[in-house]
Amino acid sequence: MKIATAAYPMDFLESWTAYEDKLARWVSEAAEAGAELLVFPEYGAMELSTLAGSDAAADLERSAHAVSDRVPEANALHARLAAEHGVHILGASAPVFDPALGPRPVNRAHFFAPSGASGHQDKQIMTRFEREEWSIAPGGPLTLFDTALGKIGVLICYDAEYPLFARALVEAGAEILLVPSCTEKRRGYWRVRIGAMARALEQQCVAVMSSTVGDAAWSYAVDTNSGAGGVFGPPDTGFPEDGVLAVGELDRPGWTCAEVDPAAIAHVRADGVVLNMTHWQEQPPRIGEVTRVALG
């Protein structure tokens, strides 16, 4: 399959039609390039807050409500584009107020199939900014999406820095991990990228990272963004020596595309030079076997 992952700039939108046109252009461009799976970044939906005006977009609480209010319309648009182009789309995540989960918003990414089916994944662990300033709450449980393209899991940004989330998804059957991100500085980008590459190594799977890029001076939450799209696998049999299937130019908007063969994932897991995914099981008995030795 061909995967397209976004380095996505957020815009101040003059109207809902401007958003529809923008998203349609992005999806059309990836589909015309032959992509079957499109991955948008974490918090890329914050541009929807501008539809409520500049004052709302600049305020943390008002912007979260403004975006959450628009999510149903955005979901309908994504579903229509997925069906129209015959593609799977991981939409940009958004703060969503879900009464079933409590009074605070969660960070939620919706996933759309061309069949019209959809689901969502919530972020599990909040960064300091999300928890200390924005009061974004942890959401619902991890979800495995069983699609026509294979079994896919989603780890939103910071979650990709925690190996047990990836392990849980892989034990459930995941072959591809999508890592939508939103990072302010290069070091943030590299933290998430290193996490994504480590998860691909440990679980012998493919990790797909998307990023927000560029300035959004109208927002306190996402005012500065640095990153790139990337597709990573294990540096082992059937994959590049460095594990990098494709990586975009830092801070340059656009799609980064890579061909991914699910058979290559199955092969490296069964007969790689190393078998990280299988040998993972040897860790737990050893964790408690720490011996103290005094050397002075």
Rank of each mutant, 00 (worst) to 15 (best):
A24T: 12
G288P: 08
A294L: 10
Q283S: 10
R104Y: 12
L250H: 07
E184I: 13
A24I: 00
R104T: 03
S135E: 15
V290A: 11
F165C: 02
W16V: 03
A64C: 14
I176K: 02
V244S: 00
D242H: 08
S49V: 05
L60G: 05
A196F: 04
P95V: 04
L155G: 00
A258E: 01
G34M: 07
A228L: 12
E259Y: 12
G214A: 05
I194G: 07
E202I: 13
A24H: 08
P114T: 03
A66L: 11
L38A: 06
G233I: 05
Y43H: 13
E184Y: 14
G119H: 04
F129K: 10
T147N: 11
I125M: 12
K123C: 05
R269A: 03
Q124V: 12
S115C: 08
D146P: 06
E161Y: 07
I156T: 07
I176G: 01
E241F: 14
G86M: 12
A166F: 06
A148C: 06
A6F: 00
G91N: 08
L169S: 05
R199D: 13
A4K: 01
E130S: 09
D236L: 08
P103V: 06
A56D: 15
H85G: 00
A83K: 14
L60P: 09
L142N: 05
V179M: 03
F232Y: 15
E20N: 01
E84V: 06
R193A: 11
A266S: 13
K151Y: 10
V96W: 10
A117Q: 11
V222C: 15
A7Y: 02
E132S: 12
Q204P: 02
V87A: 03
V213S: 06
F97Q: 06
E14P: 03
A31F: 02
P234V: 15
V27P: 02
Q121D: 09
S219C: 13
G238I: 11
